[in-house]
Amino acid sequence: MSRIKLAIVQSPLVWQQPEANCQQLAEHMDSAAGADLYVLPEMFTTGFSMNAEQIAEPMHGPTTRWLLQQSALRNAAVCGSVAIRAAGGVVNRLLFATPDGQLQYYDKRHLFRMGNEHQHYQAGTQRVVVEYLGWRFCLQVCYDLRFPVFARNRQDYDALIYVANWPASRRQVWRTLLQARALENQVAVIGCNRIGSDDNGLEYSGDSLVVDHLGVLLADGADGRDAVLQAELDLSIQQQFQQKFPAYLDADAFSLSGVFDG
């Protein structure tokens, strides 16, 4: 499948109230029927809370069940991150549910130390690429955006997904780096950020973006509205450009132990 329809949910989040957030996010998805992939913000059930032990759910808890139900109901993939209890502690886990009942996940590797995330959550160790409808999506969470080596395309993915609670005070950084990741990797980039305010006193401007492989904005939530941004990507056009302008052939070889294989 070359074309894929996206729905990026740019919404406020109710502080640490999963049921209320799931209800409003479902209503948002209802307003954008027919998408192939719905993207929800980081920690979409709670907001960016450091009350890790209080808010964390088991891997097969109510939120993962809700995601799978939403995916089956809409016959579409649905993804977003949640605080999940894992073997070594709580992780900020980006869940990717598909209508066949599969649930894949990526644990946020770069924890936001300026917000003390590293003191409350366990860092992930692996980069994760999931396949859906002929597309390969590399999953990333918020602060990961600042680390281009981790997101480097080794021709093993077709699009990057970033889910975030990225504050309005650094909105230009968010917007610039999303476009930079698209240009340097020659792939589409999907960035989903929340709006509103949280109990940490932080304001969020949204600025959710869908950027194509040329850095062109296909959808832009700069107005900060509570909305669902929609866009369509065409993999064949992206692949044609990569063949015409194969900059990746001149990339420097390197490896990161525990993240990339040799």
Results as ranks from 00 to 15, higher is better:
P148N: 05
G34R: 10
D252I: 06
L209H: 00
D100N: 12
P18Y: 15
M43A: 14
Y162F: 04
A151Y: 00
S197R: 05
D250S: 14
P148H: 05
V216W: 03
C22G: 11
R154D: 13
S208Q: 04
R175T: 13
A86S: 13
Y248F: 08
T45E: 12
Q119N: 11
G134N: 04
Y248R: 07
L40K: 01
L217W: 03
G88E: 15
V39C: 02
A32I: 05
A180N: 15
S257Y: 11
L73A: 03
R171G: 14
F241P: 00
D223S: 03
Q122Y: 09
Q10C: 05
Y106A: 05
V90M: 10
Q16R: 11
A83F: 09
A33R: 11
F147L: 04
P99R: 02
N185V: 11
Q179F: 09
L94P: 00
C79Y: 02
D261Y: 08
L160Y: 01
V189C: 01
S205P: 07
L103I: 03
H118E: 15
Q23Y: 15
G258Q: 03
N116F: 12
I195H: 02
Y157T: 02
Q230I: 03
T176G: 09
S208W: 04
A253E: 05
G196S: 11
C79R: 00
R109S: 04
C192R: 01
G191A: 04
Q70F: 04
F241L: 07
A52W: 12
Y105E: 05
V189G: 00
L103T: 02
G89M: 14
I55T: 03
E203P: 11
Q104E: 10
D212C: 02
A87M: 10
P167Q: 14
Y105F: 06
